[in-house]
Design a protein around this nucleic acid. Sequence first.
DNA 1: ACGGTGACGACAG
DNA 2: TCTGTCGCCACCG
Length: 105
Amino acid sequence: MKNDNFFEKVYQIVQRIPYGKITTYGAIANFLGTKKSARLVGYAMNSSHSIKNLPAHRVVNRNGLLTGKNHFASSNLMQELLESEGIKIENNKVVHFKDHLWIPS
DNA sequence: ACGGTGACGACAG
DNA sequence: TCTGTCGCCACCG
């Protein structure tokens, strides 16, 4: 798309997240060099509905909490996708979050 | 052109 | 430990 901007960078990184791995908004923001702008990453994801094959379910906040699940088609969709990849979810939070964490590099 | 908004994160109390 | 507040900055109306 015409997004040569911050948004596209975010999408590119999210698409690089390996299967069964997850990352955080802060990690993405940090990789982009704007660590304090994690909000922008989340905001970018808000427009991810325009992007297909975007594993947005692999992006959680720094606590491993599925803060974005409410933005999916179904509030339980995000959890199901993660569980289908071998990631356990408990009370909307990723279990062994750090063990599945993937940092863009 | 301007201000509100927000899938966050860090810090203060 | 937990809750509240502030900063951050691109996008949209």
